[in-house]
């Protein structure tokens, strides 16, 4: 077990290093002059611009810039915002709670709604209830989230006045954004749970259990569901990524003060160190969550671990 974890951790580190290369490449190899974007060129002398360039290190070759960046990241320094010279990492941590709150509660919505509807759908396969659930789930994944968010604001804050339209203080400001994001996740989970339930229900051991005269309820919930849920653990990993990415739009719609909002604003302001920092941070979170999922996966079921390693698809 310890070896599994050690190997996993090492490969995590490698992947994070890779992510930082990728992020760095996307933002710095692309055309556009970082310095010219930062300043008003007419208000500065060419020497002052050259100095600034030097100060920022953008006059050095690409690999040197990258090594420098990577070294700083390892030291926990993600650089400074070009807009107000605020250090990036503390900024991310300051805005993290609002995003975590949202991601966790949305995941909760996704899981509960997704599980309940998924099981319902599988049990009543091809009955009207199944069709209805599947259509609802499809709507969940087919609607642009900014649109469903605005619709929810109109319905629940303007017309009904039940929940506030914006903000990130207090549980009631969390309801609408969590619902919006959760609907998306629930759509995915319903499909996943339904499929794996149906698959498990077709397995021979279920037939055996039924033949033994076990009550259908017990067959379904004690045996089938439990087995169907194992892939669900993996789903958590993927969901984590989706939720983090989803916050960019959701936090903008609901004016929440989280890291998704930071990156949206940073992109508008061309504040590349912040964009870079947030993307890299998300990548790290994603890797950690998935490593945990992977480890717990192996822990739950050694058989799966072997199977999993055989197929070697990492974490998905």
């Amino acid at each position: 077990m310890a070896k599994v974890i050690a190997v996993r951790l090492l490969s995590c580190l490698a992947v994070v290093a890779g992510s930082s290369v990728l992020v760095f490449c996307i933002l710095y190899v692309l055309p556009g002059d970082v310095v010219m974007n930062m300043i008003d060129p007419s208000s500065m002398s060419p020497e002052a611009i050259a100095n600034l360039r030097h100060e920022l290190g953008v006059d050095r070759p690409f690999y040197e810039q990258f090594l420098h960046y990577f070294r700083e990241v390892l030291r926990g320094d993600f650089g400074k915002s070009l807009v107000n010279s605020e250090p990036v990492l503390p900024k991310i941590f300051a805005h993290l709670p609002a995003t975590l709150e949202l991601a966790i509660s949305a995941s909760f919505v996704s899981l509960t709604v997704g599980l309940a509807l998924g099981v319902l759908s599988a049990v009543h396969r091809n009955k009207p209830i199944d069709i209805a659930v599947r259509i609802v789930a499809l709507f969940g994944i087919s609607m642009p989230t900014f649109w469903s968010g605005i619709l929810l604001i109109l319905i629940f804050s303007v017309f009904l006045g039940w929940f506030p339209a914006m903000g990130s203080n207090g549980w009631n400001t969390l309801v609408l954004p969590a619902l919006t994001l959760g609907m998306l996740g629930a759509g995915f989970i319903v499909r996943m749970v339904r499929n794996s339930m149906l698959e498990v229900l077709g397995e021979p051991f279920i037939t055996t259990l039924r033949a033994k005269g076990l009550a259908e309820r017990a067959v379904l919930y004690r045996h089938a569901l439990r087995n169907a849920l194992i892939p669900g653990v993996t789903m958590m990993g993927i969901l984590a990524g989706e939720m983090l990415a989803g916050t960019v739009v959701i936090e903008t719609v609901f004016s929440r003060q989280g890291i998704g909002r930071i990156i949206a604003d940073a992109i508008m302001a061309k504040d590349l160190p912040v964009v870079q920092g947030v993307v890299l941070f998300t990548a790290i979170v994603y890797v950690i969550v998935n490593a945990l999922v992977d480890i717990s996966y192996a822990y739950i079921d050694p058989r799966i671990r072997r199977l999993h390693n055989d197929r070697r698809s990492g974490w998905a």
């Binding site: 890779g18 990728l22 692309l30 055309p31 556009g32 990524g241 983090l244 990156i263 993307v279 994603y286």
Partner: peptide, 25 residues
């Protein structure tokens, strides 16, 4: 190759799209 794929996977699609749009416009 699979390591590269792993790396790309760490960045959720929307964020990757945002980063590219931020760089390329």
């Amino acid at each position: 190759l699979m390591r590269i794929v792993d790396v790309i996977m760490t960045i959720p699609g929307v964020l990757l799209a945002l980063a590219v749009a931020a760089g390329l416009g």
